[in-house]
Simulated assay, not measured.
Amino acid sequence: MSIRVLVVDDSGFFRRRVTEIINADPRMEVVGVAANGQEAIEKNDSLRPDVITMDYEMPVMDGITAIRNIMQRRPVPVLMFSSLTFEGARVTLDALDAGALDFLPKNFDAVAKDSAEIKRALTDKIAAVARSHLRSAPAPVVAARPVARSRIGQKDLVVIGTSTGGPAALQTLFRTIPAGFKTPIIIVQHMPGSFTKAFAERLNGLSPLVVKEAVDGDRIQPSHVYVAPGGMQLMVERRNGGIIHIRDSDERINYRPSVDIAFASAAKHYGNKVLGVVLTGMGADGRDGARLIKQSGGHIWAQDEDSCVIFGMPMAVIKDGLSDEILPLKDIGGRLAEEVG
């Protein structure tokens, strides 16, 4: 059964091209289009699509207002189109807060040129969010299982890796970490370079900890959180109390920043004093790095399936037997304070 998609954009050209790209993929079909947010709400009710692609700036009603209404009336996975600017990042983060699950850069030139890369990115994202867990949907009822908990010992560094669903998950997590938490935290979130500064500012505004986008040479300090800059790679070194290194990324590496690279660096320099946490996300980034953390004597926590938007990254770690604990998102902040901070 194909994935039914509603395309929402005020540009007739963009609607046509996105529709052509989606309909060329045998996994999916466009069941309708809308030129503004109000039409999107009405067609979501009448056509009952599996996924909506959503623009932000539209007449009558903007995309974020439409998403809020959709999540109240008939929740459905939404993929947001966004501009790769600092202001575009803020708008996209607002959309993710409203209930959108993921985003793609809105690039008219690439769409017009019939880019194979753009086609693949769009259709793969649609397929992924179609399989996702909506945050507004009730969690499945599962039998409670006792979890053996043992203290993991003092940690000098926490490294968190995440992708799709990560911005919302991290905001939930950092609201629950108390002001007295001292252990430094590094965040590796798959995001474009123009987004991570805005995201760090947003986390800083809701957390009692100091959150900033990491820059090369940052000294790792207690009660500080460092967000890896998009498009680059973050590594750490233990000397002088801990230093962050930011390096250009090899184009052959799929993820920029990469959880695997940050985990590997932490394993090398912090050994058994590092805790890696793998949250919601597509793919398997973090699995190889988690293995190195385990080999160095460190520990790994993974988010459980029920609280993930996309279970791919935690599942990869769990399937390889690398997770010391599998935790619901709502419990991770408290456990960090209890075990680590």
Rank of each mutant, 00 (worst) to 15 (best):
V51Y: 02
A198K: 02
D156V: 00
A127N: 10
V60Y: 03
R202G: 12
M80F: 04
I185Y: 01
R90D: 14
V340P: 11
D248Y: 06
L96N: 11
I118E: 13
G276D: 08
R120C: 04
D45R: 13
N204C: 06
R17L: 14
D9Q: 03
G63A: 01
M71D: 09
A112W: 00
D124K: 06
Q295Y: 02
L96C: 09
A198L: 06
R131W: 00
D216N: 15
G341R: 01
M1P: 11
P208H: 04
D9S: 05
L79M: 08
I67E: 07
Q189W: 06
A284T: 14
G193D: 12
S83G: 12
G193V: 07
I187S: 01
E237F: 06
R202K: 13
S207D: 09
Y226P: 06
R16Y: 01
I332S: 00
G88T: 09
E29L: 07
I3N: 02
A179H: 05
V111L: 15
M282D: 11
A148H: 09
I3T: 12
G153I: 01
Y56D: 06
G88I: 10
V211M: 00
T183K: 01
K268A: 13
P105R: 02
I244W: 02
G271P: 14
E57Q: 13
K113L: 12
S115E: 13
V159E: 04
R175N: 08
L327F: 01
T162Y: 00
K330Q: 13
S265R: 02
A143L: 08
N272L: 00
A143P: 14
L104F: 07
A121K: 15
I246S: 02
E117C: 01
A144Y: 12
R48N: 14
D124E: 15
A137M: 03
R48H: 12
P140I: 01
I244S: 00
S296M: 08
